[in-house]
Design a protein around this nucleic acid. Structure first.
Length: 653
RNA sequence: GCCGACGUAGCUCAGCUGGUAGAGCAGCUCAUUCGUAAUGAGCAGGUCAUCGGUUCAAAUCCGAUCGUCGGCUCCA
């Protein structure tokens, strides 16, 4: 048997000698394809072109046109960058590179002096030379000993250490390109010139092996595409994200601001508070329907409480603690211990369960300075937080109900790109491992029952509970974790929580921690960027602005404003001495959903001329009553703009 | 907390190798009374993040601190 059969995507089969490379398949199909080939896919798995085939397989050839192609050429760009760095700075030791799915690649270097922006320019120029030289990538299989010898001779001690990470039964491959050699699984492009366009983006420090006790390496980030056009499009997308940055939009739209006088603690302005409070009001409305009881526990506790919960031990350094009358007090960083106390303050009957305690209190966490980021990582925040105490046999239906409520909220907010993950027990945990296994399984099952196949994040759980994380993808394709539900393994026992069962015995309740929007501050930021400030009518700080054409119409305009306000609409009137076009422009820039133009005709007929945000088509005059009724309906329905499909402005009710 | 970059008027930014701070927008005043994304003119606005050092002289050079940004680590 010296022949193998290779099946192609179009169903055809090619016969090749055993041991033929993936590239040989491409050559057999055609010289054009062979030249354009970046990698192969063997039985669906991305494979280097130089890999030998020794059995019957399905093969497809990956070119720049395939999404995987970009990943391959970015990986090769990573090597070219490391090569360029070694050429310019022979004293550096290379660690490893990485190509993630966010269109970026990176490579870590050990060097005494940090890289600066000027270095990036020089490295980029050196990379350009390597790319122009059309150097081939050569793959070699080596033994573990040969690999170690090779890299220690080259002074690459970090690499030698990385070789030890490779499982003993795995094949060790290296790639050469020019004088550069790297330990690498591949796949790689054939020649450096197949990397069409690249750009180095940034440099930062990163700990070796991700451990902050280790020395810091210099990490360079870059991106690469098959051609210049795609690179430009990528850079434009970055610009777009900058335009939507909540740290820019927030102050510009008069929603909030941050000040060094209290790092990580936002000042919410009147307009921001409307959005914030509307979100809270919406959750409260759902709490009535879903059977939650809103409560309010203290903000400050004797730290004994956090010792009981275990948070003190785990998060002491990140809490605001202070002495008071000989005792140590602390600002609460989460609601669960307070709710556990509220549950335990008297004897509970099984008839009271499930007991769902919700709270919107402010929480304070003394986040490390470097961790702060706009509203997405703050020191002072509130959550749409709740803890559910229930009997063991009620856990399943509670999880079902949670997913149901979550889906309702996300649908209302038009966040329809949802995925979930289950985080499992990590190194730090409390409770019995066997119980963790059961809880993790239940969470996975609950996700499936809700129609989501969860990804598994190993070791990512909170110290007291495995958790489900619910992620949404925003208009720019960024993924954010919003909702979470955790099945607690420890708190009820630590607090000695009991209830009397229907048989008169004592039982320990199960405790679920859950949030749907998560940190309201963070959600605010994410939603602001997602919508670019174009809030749906029910959330818009100013829903309608009345625009009189001249000061002749001021009295009528003010009457209209009063009528709108009396109808419960957040209306304003623009009485400034400006032309209509100017006022419309201002209202557009402030993202006001509805403008009501009033002039001679409207005043004479008792009407208004409405205009929707982003809609310059002239609309006919409407009676005030009709407009009020329409807007009230839109608010009551909490209608949103659906922007997940191309950002269209159609109302999806 | 660690690595790097940055910090000039409310905002966006000029200000070359040291010689005493400038524009546009926003704000205020006046004129204009105007029909769907910017009417015109004028006025005012800054301890150049803070503190210290070098110098005859510092927004500019050096150091420290604070803050912000991009990462790392962390994220109850």
């Amino acid at each position: 048997m010296n022949e193998i059969h290779v099946r192609l995507p179009d169903g055809k089969t090619l016969a090749l000698p055993k041991g033929a490379s993936v590239l040989a398949v491409a050559e057999k199909i055609g010289p054009g394809l062979a030249k354009a080939a970046l990698a192969g896919k063997v039985n669906g798995k991305l494979t280097d072109l130089r890999v030998a085939l020794d059995a019957d397989v399905e093969v497809s050839i990956v070119t720049a046109r395939d999404p995987e192609g970009a990943e391959v050429l970015r990986h090769s760009a990573e090597h070219v960058m490391a090569d360029a760095v070694k050429r310019l700075f022979p004293q550096v030791q290379i660690d490893v590179g990485r190509t993630d799915h966010s269109e970026k690649f990176q490579y870590d270097f050990l060097i005494e002096r940090p890289f600066g922006p000027e270095d990036l320019v020089a490295i980029e120029a050196e990379m350009e030379k390597i790319v122009k030289a059309k150097q081939p990538f050569v793959r070699e299989i080596v033994t573990r000993e040969a690999a170690k010898k090779l890299f220690s001779e080259r002074g690459e001690m970090l690499k030698v250490s990385r070789i030890d990470d490779i499982p003993t039964d795995a094949e060790i491959s290296i790639f050469r390109q020019g004088d550069f050699i790297d330990l690498c699984r591949g796949p790689h492009v054939q020649r450096t010139d197949q990397i069409g366009a690249f750009r180095l983006i940034d440099v930062s420090g990163s700990y070796w092996r991700g451990d902050e006790r280790n020395p810091m390496l210099q990490r360079i980030y870059g991106t690469a595409f098959a051609d210049k056009k795609e690179l430009v499009a990528y850079l434009e997308r970055i610009e777009e994200a900058k335009k939507r940055d909540h740290r820019r939009l927030g102050p510009a739209l008069d929603l909030f601001h941050l000040d060094p006088i209290s790092p990580g603690s936002p000042f919410f302005h009147a307009k921001g508070m409307i959005v914030y409070n509307q979100l809270v009001a919406y959750m409260r409305e759902l709490y009535v329907r879903y059977g939650y009881d809103e409560v309010m526990a203290p903000l400050i506790f004797n730290t004994d409480l956090f010792k009981t919960s275990g948070h003190y031990e785990n998060f002491k350094d990140d809490m605001f603690l202070f002495p008071s009358h000989e005792t140590e007090m602390g600002l609460k960083p989460m609601n669960c211990p307070g709710h556990a106390m509220m549950f335990g303050m008297r004897k509970r009957s099984y008839r009271e369960l499930p007991l769902r305690l919700a709270e919107f209190s402010r929480l304070h966490r003394n986040e490390r300075a470097g961790a702060l980021q706009g509203l997405t990582r703050v020191r002072s925040f509130a959550q749409d937080d709740a803890h559910i105490f229930c009997r063991p046999d009620q856990v399943e239906s509670e999880l079902t109900q949670f997913f149901q409520m979550l889906r309702e909220v996300y649908t209302t907010l038009c966040l329809d790109n949802v995925s979930v993950a289950v985080s499992t027990r990590g190194e730090r945990f409390i409770g019995a491992p066997e119980r963790w296994d059961i809880a993790e399984k239940r969470l996975v099952e609950a996700c499936r029952a809700a129609g989501y196949e969860p990804a598994i994040k190993k070791g990512e759980a909170a110290f007291y509970a495995p958790k489900v994380e619910v992620d949404v993808t925003d208009v720019l394709g960024r993924v954010w974790t919003l909702g979470t539900v955790q099945l607690d393994m420890a708190m009820p026992e630590r607090f000695g929580l009991k209830y009397i069962t229907d048989e008169g015995s004592e039982g320990t309740p199960e405790m679920l921690h859950r949030a749907i929007l998560g940190s309201l501050e963070r959600f605010f930021a994410i939603y602001l960027e997602h919508t670019e400030g174009d809030f749906p009518l029910w959330l818009a700080p100013v829903q309608i602005v009345v625009l009189p054409i001249t000061d002749r119409h001021h009295a009528y305009a003010q009457k209209v404003e009063q009528t709108l306000r009396a109808a419960g609409l957040r209306a304003q009137v623009d009485l400034r001495n400006e032309k209509l076009g100017y006022k419309i422009r201002e209202a557009e820039l402030h993202k006001t959903p509805i403008m009501a133009v009033v002039g001679d005709q409207e005043e004479a007929n008792g009407t208004i001329a409405p205009r929707r945000r982003h809609d310059s088509s002239e609309s006919s005059a409407t009676s005030l009553e009709a407009l009020v009724a329409e807007l009230q309906r839109e608010v009551a329905d909490r209608r949103s703009l659906n922007r997940s499909r191309g950002g269209t402005q159609d109302l999806s009710s």
